[in-house]
Amino acid sequence: MKLKYLLIFLILLLTLLILTYFTKSSSVNVKAIVPGICGNSIKEIGEECDAPDLGGQSCISLGFSGGNLSCNSNCTLNTSGCTSLPPSGGGGGGGGPGYFPLQYGTIIISGKAYPNSEVTLLSDGQIKSTLKAGARGDFEFTLRDLSPGLYIFSLYSEDSKGRRSSLINFQVMLRAGETAKSSGIFLSPTIDIDKTSVRKGDVLQIFGQATPDAEVIISISSDEEIFFRLPTEKDGSYLYVLKTDDLEEGDHYTKSRQIYQNQMISPYSRTLSFVVGTTTVLKKSEKKCPNKGDLNNDCRVNLIDFSIAAYWYKRKLSPAFAKIEREKLNGDGKINLIDFSIMAYWYTG
């Protein structure tokens, strides 16, 4: 008997589960069909073409052997420029016009990052691939089956302390059926300092991660720019102890770059600021998340953050979002191009 009721109970539970899974409100899609406007260069409904938009057609797709397909001013196709091959001799006739299959290409990207670090490759702003660099910092990405065209790549890496390098951008033009190589990509070092404010006469430590066997150039700027050069340690790390006796009191900035075997020079790292004054303030250890631009607190700056900022672009900010803008952007109380520039600087994909 008990078994019978237990069975009924289980059947009811199962029925409810199934009903819940399948129950959803239906939606109605309403599509408005708008007749095309001839002359706006976009092939629309009711048009065969709208120069230079040929709707994907060519002489070959229309059954000709070649030539130039064009568009009349009334948005109809003009095949007068198409050519036809004469029929092959001997009767029987040849086959139809050939269809050329789509051709793709390959891009190979190589360079140097930090030993055993994770290197992230973005293509047109989206993460394409990540891999681990070798023990000497070497990496190589191979991207296959790519459409021909211009690719904008970005690369960054993270050192063993979780510090991210700045983004390095480069472009590759890929032709159909070809393999394009982009080598010698050299990431900038990561950089950090131990104090945000240093009493004049005390020392400031500037350190970070670079490539083994590279030489690091540290720049200190205030009124004038001063440079220091030092080799990296065996693991690629570097540390410079800056004496502040000769620095003026006030705001200063530091950044670094690296040179490898006098052949490869990296871009500069992020710029850090510090103050030379009367007190010493130790720098708090930074969280690994981007300092700015991470509007949804997911430790990334990507399309989601852009979509949030785009929502508020040229709009009055709500009090809740104004607080986020103060913390994560430039705090001027509005979203404009400057905020997008800040987000683009901290972009992670």
Binding site: D53, D124, S147, P148, N302, A320, F321
Partner: peptide, 23 residues
């Protein structure tokens, strides 16, 4: 002789789903 031909589809892309209490 400006011929624009395109037989390749757009690039692959990711769809992000999210929500924001302010939007």
């Amino acid at each position: 002789n400006f011929v624009l031909e395109d037989r390749h589809p757009p690039e692959r892309f990711k769809i992000y789903v999210t929500r924001d209490k302010n939007m």
